[in-house]
């Protein structure tokens, strides 16, 4: 307790309170700095606009996420071709294997794979992402009719 005389004149529990608030302030500031540095590296996937702005080198494993573009899905045996869009840019993806149940046009998707030298994206894994909306099928159906969803 070598702090200022004003601090020493406080009752012990008030000294502890001041110390606690000070420690939490420092902790909060340090965390905010650390989080702002982590930034993009904590992101789980890149959007099409991200990979087109800063193209990852061919052969490096990345995750690409966005919406499955409407009308882009083509099934050919075990091979599925589709385009991932973030409504600004899109990337063509090919995937061999079984897609998840929630994989459908207009829905969110995260693919893991690599760009080939030719610029095509070949996915090893396809995960379906769903949004924060939950509703019964009949409500979704009537919303579709009035055009509020999709």
């Amino acid at each position: 307790m070598t702090a200022r005389p004003g601090f020493k004149r406080l009752r012990p529990k008030h000294q502890r309170l001041v110390l606690l608030v000070a420690a939490l302030t420092v902790l909060g500031g340090a965390s905010a700095l650390a989080l702002s540095t982590i930034g993009d590296t904590a992101t789980y996937f890149y959007a099409p606009s991200d990979v087109l702005a800063r193209a990852p080198e061919a052969g490096r494993a990345i995750r690409l996420g966005g919406l499955v573009e409407r009308g882009s899905v083509v099934h050919a045996g075990a091979l599925t071709r589709f385009r991932v869009t973030d409504n600004a840019h899109e990337v063509a993806v090919t995937y061999t294997g079984i897609v998840p149940d929630l994989f459908r046009e207009g829905q969110g998707v995260i693919t893991e794979g690599r760009f080939t030298a030719g610029g095509a994206f070949v996915a090893d894994t396809v995960l379906a992402k769903h949004d924060e909306k939950y509703m019964p099928p009949e409500v979704a159906g009537s919303l579709h009719k009035v055009g509020r969803v999709g």
Partner: peptide
């Protein structure tokens, strides 16, 4: 961050759950 987990459904002002 971009995550596989979706965003919040319930906020103080609204809910996107039926």
């Amino acid at each position: 961050w971009h995550t596989l987990h979706q965003g919040p459904s319930i906020t103080l002002t609204k809910s996107t759950i039926d």
